[in-house]
Computed example of a mutant assay.
Amino acid sequence: MSSPTLKQANAIIEGVLSARRDAKIKPLAVVVLDASGNVVAAQREDNASMFRMDIALGKAWGAAAMGCSSRALGNRAKDNPAFFTTLAATAKGRFLPQTGAVLLLGDDGAILGAVGASGGTGEEDEACCIKGIEVAGMKTQAV
């Protein structure tokens, strides 16, 4: 399994931030992880509010760990809150099943990592992540 390169991760982040500016969303923090949950690249825009980086990381980490978008995780958490509370505790706060992170996929569909953002609504964060991945010429799954 390969991982996103630093160059690819930075291209994704620039695409996410460009989409944010185009949509006039509040400043974001963006995190690109490899499939093992390691940070490849991360940025916090000027004036992004407190906790944005932590929230973006938690969304992306959960997506990478569970192999699906953070939106899907949030939906699953509604049906099984005790399990997801236990997951969050086990992950020492790195697991956040809230809309705003999507998987980063290879050409063969293998999971390369995840991209998470925080600063707008969950839907806005997610849309910016998808756009950033597309702008970088990479793939994600349908949400």
Rank of each mutant, 00 (worst) to 15 (best):
N47W: 08
L6Y: 10
S2Y: 02
L96R: 09
P27W: 09
L33Y: 08
G62H: 10
A117F: 05
A77S: 13
A89L: 11
A91Q: 05
A48V: 02
S2P: 14
V135D: 14
G58E: 07
A136S: 11
I55D: 08
A35L: 04
A110K: 07
G58T: 10
D22W: 01
L73A: 07
F84K: 03
S18E: 13
V102M: 02
G93H: 04
V39Y: 04
S18C: 06
A101M: 13
M138I: 09
C68L: 13
A48Q: 02
V135G: 03
A127N: 10
G119C: 14
G15H: 01
T121A: 09
T5D: 05
G113V: 02
A35E: 07
A41L: 03
A72D: 11
G106W: 00
V102G: 03
G37L: 02
A63V: 12
G116I: 05
A41R: 05
A56E: 09
G116N: 13
N47A: 15
S18A: 13
R76S: 11
M1T: 01
P81G: 06
T99V: 13
D46E: 13
A64V: 01
A88H: 04
L96P: 03
E134C: 07
C68K: 15
K92L: 11
A9F: 03
R52K: 11
S18D: 14
S118E: 07
T140K: 00
M53G: 04
K78S: 10
T90N: 06
I25P: 02
C129G: 04
A23V: 07
L96Q: 13
I25F: 01
V135C: 04
A60F: 13
K7F: 03
G93W: 04
T85W: 00
